[in-house]
Every structure is written in structure tokens, then in C-alpha cells.
């Protein structure tokens, strides 16, 4: 059920990318698709009543194997989140250049102006 909701979130982002005309909305939709994929990986890593994979002083290190959630998707997603911010900033830079070149955020008008 939760996986299905996550897929619905991804599909809403895809709908926004395909259908919307405003560049800012397309950027937000792409960021949402990024968020949905990150969330899906972390959902796969969860274990019922799992704890974070961080040891406290005095804890037995071997207990992590029985109680902790999967640390590997967290490590992959941690870099992906920051890369998503870099990509968003790059797209915003492109959008600002387009706005000052054509005077609009509407991609259909940009296409018409380009010919």
C-alpha cells in the first residue's frame, strides 16, 4: 500500500513534467520525482521497529545486525539528495536565462519564438 502511494507520487511528478507549461512547475515536478525515488529506496530498507544504524557508547556492535535498518540505501540516497539540489539550482539558472531571453516562463511561447 505504501509502495503504491510512493508510485502515485512519482506519477504525479511525471504528469507535471509532461503536461504543464510553466518551467517553474516542471522544475518542481522533477524535484518531486527525485524525492519519490529516494523515498522508495528508503522504504525498501526499513525493518519493523528498526533503529538507526548508529552505535551508542557501550553498545555491543553485533546487535546492529539484528535491530538496525539497512544502511546501504541510506548511504546511496544521502549523495542523491545533495545532487538533486545541485540539479535544481542548475535548472533554475537555465530558467532565469530563458526568462531574460524570451520574457516568459511558458515553454510553448518559447517554442513559437524560436520558430
Amino acid at each position: 500500500m505504501i509502495y503504491t502511494l510512493c508510485i502515485i507520487l512519482f506519477l504525479l511528478g511525471l504528469y507535471g513534467v509532461l503536461v504543464k507549461r510553466n518551467i517553474i512547475k516542471i522544475i518542481i515536478s522533477l524535484a518531486m520525482m527525485n524525492n519519490a525515488v529516494n523515498l522508495f529506496l528508503i522504504l525498501l530498507a526499513y525493518r519493523s521497529n528498526g533503529v538507526a544504524p548508529i552505535l551508542d557508547p557501550g553498545m555491543d556492535p553485533s546487535i546492529l545486525l539484528e535491530t538496525s535498518v539497512d544502511p546501504l540505501p541510506q548511504a546511496l540516497v544521502l549523495t542523491s539528495v545533495v545532487i538533486g539540489l545541485g540539479v535544481t539550482a542548475l535548472m533554475v539558472a537555465l530558467a532565469i536565462r530563458l526568462y531574460h531571453a524570451y520574457g516568459t516562463f511558458d515553454i510553448t511561447k518559447i517554442r513559437k519564438l524560436k520558430g
Binding site: 526499513y46 544521502l78 526568462y99
Partner: peptide
């Protein structure tokens, strides 16, 4: 979901991306 590292990163990243997008949209369009 037991990922506090990701929660910290996500909050900070979201703040900065909202600031960047507001900078892009304000006074325009």
C-alpha cells in the same frame, strides 16, 4: 524510517531549494 542523517540533509536541502526557487520566481511572471 530510521534515517536521521537523511532527515537533516533533507530539511537543509529543502530550505535552500525553496530560497533559490523563490529568488527565481519573485518579481517575475
Amino acid at each position: 524510517l530510521g534515517a536521521p542523517d537523511l532527515a537533516i540533509v533533507q530539511i537543509a536541502v529543502e530550505v535552500i531549494s525553496v530560497v533559490i526557487l523563490i529568488r527565481a520566481t519573485i518579481h517575475r511572471d
